[in-house]
Design a protein around this nucleic acid. Structure first.
Lengths: 242, 242
DNA sequence: GCTAACTGGGTACAGTGTTCGCAATACCGA
DNA sequence: TCGGTATTGCGAACACTGTACCCAGTTAGC
């Protein structure tokens, strides 16, 4: 058992009672990190950079946080705070749809969020609040906790996976300076090679037909379609009503 | 349009025809990277480390590859090669199930794979072959390419998302030196705080009931259950048979 | 055989996260 | 009111990272 040398972030008091009052707060650190990540990507978020934006010394940040991962956790939970105020109407299908859409929108607004929340699950107050709200969808239905978690897990796995692919496509298109259609059409100069090889007839067809109209909101429609299919699938195994 | 200073990996010839024969191959580099990543995690994969394992100079690697991202792409495609030889039986539901399971098993065997394939889509020959195989599931059904992509997208988004969560849980448990049950039960010493706060009654119930028997294969059952629900959902919108 | 292309690899540079030590500060108990 | 002590801010330093640049040695094509 490799004893953690640092106690978990959310257990440690934000600051002591003895010495001088801290100049900033954990929230300041999180907000600065979010601003940088939104504007320049997650890679631009470094301790030195955050400190510079905050106008403080680099290693002063370690008074608020014991490792960089803590900063990322703070950022994640701060963003999850944007979901506070969400109200559900009491119909599981409609509520799960709302949850999925809000999650996606938040993740698209902060393109680094999905990457971060891929791995570890956040324990911050806002994340816990969101978890609690999500669980409340099943209030009154007679489900085991395992079933509730399985349902939520399936849904959020879909949302997470879908958003990650959306963002991947966006970045690929952006970094080649092409629109989605142009990019699909020639796959970054690689397309012709794929087509000409003759090895991938079906994929070739996908490339060639990639110029359907209104492709701008293809992602939206793809998400909505997938979401409905998932809700259909869940419905088949859930009590009929509530 | 930020012109790419480096041509795409798969377009450049692996080596020239003029000078001395290269000592190693791209494949050697990929395999070395995979060995390191499997054994010590993705963070342990550095250019210096790969070079050391290969018994060559660090910067010599840049004869095979123009940036580290290329190495990661090579690693991904090499692993996708493990899926060659997959045979489908011609029933879409059964075939999609096979695809999802194989994808998950591969991603669990190489815990870094899901993280990598989150973002950009791989263009390597093995990845293309797998894409082609996946598309072949819909042979004979009369689907638009958009529908085919939407279906595959929903499925693979679920697999990716689910595997990422599995791996996240595994690592969280491993890094705290606890079993999944113990970890769920006390959330790394944080659980009691959550419970005592009284703010999260539903989540508290989840924590308290987290000690169901046979929890070892909970992930397996969760995956299979979610998978079937997704297939159910797809079935509702697909032509009846093939 | 000569030239041009190519490979191997050392050096160097600008970053990174994080530990350590020290001065300044402000609360707590006496 | 006055130490004593916990706490903050922060510069210096360390061990890393990816990779651009350079040069020597090697081989294929003309």
């Amino acid at each position: 058992m490799p004893a953690n040398d640092h106690p978990p972030l959310w257990l440690r008091p934000a600051h002591g009672t003895r010495g001088p009052k801290p100049t900033h707060s954990r929230r300041d650190v999180a907000v600065a990190g979010i601003r940088i990540a939104d504007a320049e990507g997650l890679d631009a978020v470094s301790m030195r950079r955050i400190a510079a934006d905050l106008g403080t010394g680099t290693t002063s940040l370690y008074r608020y946080v014991s490792k960089k991962d803590d900063v990322l956790e703070l950022m994640t939970d701060e963003v999850m705070g944007e979901l506070r105020g969400t109200v559900l109407i009491g119909n599981w299908r409609s509520d799960l749809r709302t949850i999925a859409r809000l999650l996606r929108q938040t993740a698209l607004r902060h393109p680094w969020l999905a990457t971060l929340s891929s791995g570890r699950s956040n324990q911050g107050p806002n994340s816990l609040w969101w978890m609690e709200l999500s669980l409340s969808v099943f209030d009154g239905m007679d489900l085991s906790t395992d079933d509730m978690l399985a349902n939520l897990g399936t849904l959020s796995a879909f949302v997470l996976g879908h958003v990650l692919r959306e963002l991947g496509d966006q970045e690929a298109a952006r970094r080649s300076g092409l629109t989605h259609e142009q990019w699909m059409k020639q796959q970054g100069v690689y397309g012709p090679t794929i087509v000409n090889s003759g090895l991938y007839p079906r994929f070739t067809r996908v490339i060639n037909e990639a110029e359907t109209p209104h492709a701008a909101d293809r992602q939206n429609r793809g998400f909505e379609a997938g979401l409905e299919r998932i809700l259909d699938g869940l419905a088949a195994h859930l009590p009929t009503r509530r």
